[in-house]
Nucleic acid binder design. Structure first.
Lengths: 340, 340
DNA sequence: CTGAAAGCGCTTACAG
DNA sequence: CTGAAAGCGCTTACAG
């Protein structure tokens, strides 16, 4: 049913190679150009992409491997990638792994055999299996959201964001603080944000007084907890924390966790921010609309996606790319933190 | 660098066709099977998908065209589609159009030339251009979220959901109601939900008393408004409404609109639900976590995605599919509606 | 069970 | 500028 280049050539009375040249902007006389143009328009001919890719050995496609689709961070990063890729006539292929590490590895191999040009990987952690897969498939890979010495990476500045949040809440007079974090397996979210925060605490004290005892003597009571990424997990965790500790503020490692904490507080009749202040990380849309609006760190996910796309394109074209690109962030002071 | 089937054949001392047969489960003697198996394993050979697809004329890919990525409805529908497709060894290709109708048409043609097996289209409205494109590309298309006589469709039961919301809020004693809807160009969200609601109002009155005057005489004051899909638009619209009308309840055509309304109410110091009740449509995760939790209609987006995938597969296989599949919904009574 | 050959629809040197 | 031919890496009748 569908016309092939041979049909077009025949109908226009020229050779296939001439049609191909016309299609790809090679030199063709005005006359033949016109003839072919007519036939192409009349038949609505479009080249078969498989045949094209079979010749090219590589398709104009960038694959993305994402742990989930229903996340503000992921969807906005994808939108940025898509936008940038589209402007370069590349396509974005999304492979969702539902937070299953095995499927991440599979996805890598899967994309590998599809001869795509490059891969953008949004992963929470990099295992040896990831490294092996990346080596095996011989396709440029850019890691987004995490940093790894062996892979080109693009990250948000989690450490300094954590530091700024810490410095800010301390400046507001908070001394009894629960830090609600996540697993340290996720270095960006679980380690960097927390370490930045800790450093801010240290810097708030005179040198040499960083021991637990010294902190305590200075009136600080800062405790660290761990929960999952889901709001429901955070709600339960927050409730458990509040059973044993009455902090004036909870620093949450993600906006989702903050949302869970706020919900737990409401359920217990704890007013925010007057009785309990809360902060997040992320800058999800919803955090601006809830009441009270959440004080948080806003990451430029969409912009990160654009830059990621630019970087992977450079990698594909064998142009130099910085080993690690660091994005900016913005501390957004809203209503969820009270002065003490 | 990458091995081809010819390499494998050569290394195993057999013909290409035999290797192909081995790969595709054709009849091969145990002996040759073992030989080929060894070589394949040793070389890590994987067939070139382009060459395969070039022969097959069609790839095991289902394309999806979505208006946006950062929406609960879209992402959950996609997750359902992906899950189902994966179990059938099909791949999902996502084309995001950023709510640009022109790009929807382009995406259709784009997917058409990629020889994918089928397309799942999430569109707010179907224009003649859509119809033309769908006819031109000669690939099965399933419409999700909207209904169209000329296209196989899968919809949520917006009309009855609207009816149930209407019946429910009336049963709670509300008589002064602002219905905050969206453009009627979006038939599912803009028309069906509203019409269902209107019918519930009619059914609450004795027959024959459906005129505006009769409504008024019976103590009802129901006004209809229109806004956009974004929370920020809804917030502004809600504020404007509240300037001129003090309803006891606002029925919002989507959860996002409800979120905007709630935000506007807070800004004006209006307590929810005691001073103003609110309802939504959708059942987004966040509506359960905010305070007060939102009374809304929950649509099974993920399940809808799964069914959509099943239907498009049947279409691809030329099996019969109902012209329109209707999904269920659940009215979730939470805290945002007060009794009057 | 196995192999040689043709063909899927393109593109790309190579001649002319 | 234009065409004939080879080749990209598979699969699939067709013989044997």
């Amino acid at each position: 049913m569908n016309k092939t280049i041979a049909d077009i050539a025949h109908m226009a009375g020229v050779a296939k190679s001439t049609v191909s040249r016309y299609l790809n902007g090679g030199s063709v006389s005005v006359d033949t150009k016109r003839k072919i143009e007519q036939v192409v328009k009349a038949t609505g001919y479009v080249p078969n992409t498989f045949a094209q890719s079979l010749k090219a050995k590589r398709a104009n496609i960038i694959g993305t491997v994402v742990p989930r689709l229903d996340s503000f961070a992921t969807s906005h990063t994808l939108m940025g990638i898509d936008e940038e890729l589209r402007s370069r006539h590349y396509q974005m292929l999304i492979s969702n792994t539902s937070q299953d590490v095995k499927r991440e590895i599979e996805a890598l191999y899967d994309l590998g055999r599809q001869k795509i040009s490059g891969i953008i990987l949004l992963a929470a952690q990099i295992t040896d299996d990831h490294l092996t897969a990346i080596r095996d498939i011989r396709i440029p890979v850019l890691l987004v959201g995490q940093q790894h010495e062996q892979i080109h990476s693009l990250i948000h500045d989690d450490y300094h964001a954590g530091y700024d949040i810490g410095a800010y809440v301390l400046s507001q007079g908070h001394r009894e603080i629960a830090y609600v974090g996540v697993t340290e397996k996720d270095v960006a979210v679980g380690v960097q944000r927390k370490e930045g925060f800790k450093q801010a605490v240290r810097d708030a004290l005179p040198e040499g007084s960083h021991t637990d005892d010294a902190l305590w003597a200075a009136g600080y009571d800062i405790r660290y907890y761990e929960t999952g990424f889901k709001m429901s997990d955070a709600r339960i965790a927050a409730s458990a924390i509040l059973d044993q500790f009455k902090p004036s503020l909870m620093v949450c490692a993600t906006d989702n966790i903050a949302l869970g904490v706020i919900n737990a507080a409401y359920s217990r009749g704890i007013a925010i921010p007057s009785e309990l202040s809360v902060t997040g990380f992320g800058g999800y849309d919803i955090t601006a609309v809830i009441h009270p609006a959440l004080t948080t760190v806003q990451y430029p996910y969409m912009e990160a996606g654009r830059v990621a796309a630019q970087n992977i394109m450079r990698l594909v074209e064998h142009k130099p790319v910085e080993q690690v690109t660091v994005m900016n962030y913005t501390l957004i002071e809203r209503e969820s933190v009270d002065k003490r």
